[in-house]
């Protein structure tokens, strides 16, 4: 089954439904209107650029270029989280990047060993869309995890200090904050995953079915993708929080005073 192309005018008309959330955000003075418009424009421009770029990158399929593109993706995602999370300390970029690399590395192993058979993971047609999908799906949890953990310690400094005074070492004093940030980062995904199949069909599976694949094959792919994204996100979040611990605290075991904007 061939997929119908979308007419340019229809693409534009379809995008007009964004006026609804835009008006909501303006009416309730959420401050989200401008970032939403910017993020949507960025999304559109970036996807078009990538579309053109991918056309060539797939044609050339050079290992070094594919890996360079992976590095660009890792850097862009870490910068996005770093900037959005409001950390003032520049070193915070490192734990965020380390977290994403750890999550992606795990997934590369799973994909390479279990899913792709004898296909090379570093083939452009495989590496770029899959790495992009994994990284993209990790962003939300990664942002929520690291941001929640450290801003809660900052807001709740008396409790954190009290734990230290009761004999906790830094990691033990951080324990409840890590638990809280994991809950916040993963509760939505757990709820969403429980509804997959009954309420919605994920993008990749929908794409495969629209492209004419056997639904049973599409399901197997989809299960492994969801599992990989979930495990990868969990590793990303915990790695970034634990690596950030090395940069976030001063000699007195308290958070550095200039940590947030």
């Amino acid at each position: 089954m061939a997929i119908n192309d979308i007419d340019w005018l229809n693409l534009l008309l379809g995008s007009l439904i964004l006026i609804i959330p835009l008006l909501m955000f303006i009416y309730y003075k959420t401050g989200l209107a401008k970032p939403m418009v910017i993020s949507m424009l960025r999304m559109g421009v970036q996807l078009f650029l990538v579309g053109f770029y991918l056309k060539y990158i797939f044609e050339w399929n050079l290992l070094w270029l594919n890996i360079l593109w992976l590095i660009v993706m890792l850097n862009a995602s870490s910068m996005t989280i770093y900037k959005r999370s409001g950390f003032k300390v520049k070193q915070f970029y490192i734990p965020i990047l380390a977290g994403i690399i750890a999550g992606v590395a795990l997934n590369i192993i799973v994909f390479d060993l279990l899913i792709l058979g004898n296909q090379n993971f570093f083939n452009a047609r495989i590496l770029i869309p899959i790495a992009g999908m994994l990284i993209g799906n990790t962003l939300g949890a990664s942002y929520l995890g690291i941001k929640t953990c450290y801003s809660n310690i900052s807001k709740d400094e008396e409790r954190y200090k009290y734990a230290l005074m009761l004999g906790a070492n830094r990691q033990e004093a951080m324990f409840p904050y890590i638990a809280e940030s994991l809950k916040l980062a993963f509760n939505p995904t757990i709820i969403t995953n429980a509804s997959i199949g009954l309420i919605w069909l994920p993008g990749m599976m929908t794409g495969q079915i629209l492209g004419g694949s056997d639904p049973l094959v599409a399901i197997k792919y989809q299960i492994l993708i969801i599992v990989a994204i979930f495990a990868g996100s969990a590793i990303t979040v915990l790695t970034s929080i634990l690596v950030a611990e090395k940069f976030a605290f001063g000699k007195n075991d308290l958070l550095k005073p200039n940590l947030f904007n």
């Binding site: 008396e158 409790r159 200090k161 009290y162 005074m165 009761l166 004999g167 070492n169 033990e172």
Partner: peptide, 28 residues
């Protein structure tokens, strides 16, 4: 021992849990 102005107790269950909470820390 530090007792701040707004007293905090650790744990989220009952008082026994709060009293035993700091004894989960490796040093105690």
């Amino acid at each position: 021992a530090y007792l701040p102005q707004n007293i905090l107790l650790m744990g989220d269950k009952n008082v026994l849990d709060a009293i035993e909470y700091p004894f989960h820390y490796s040093i105690n």
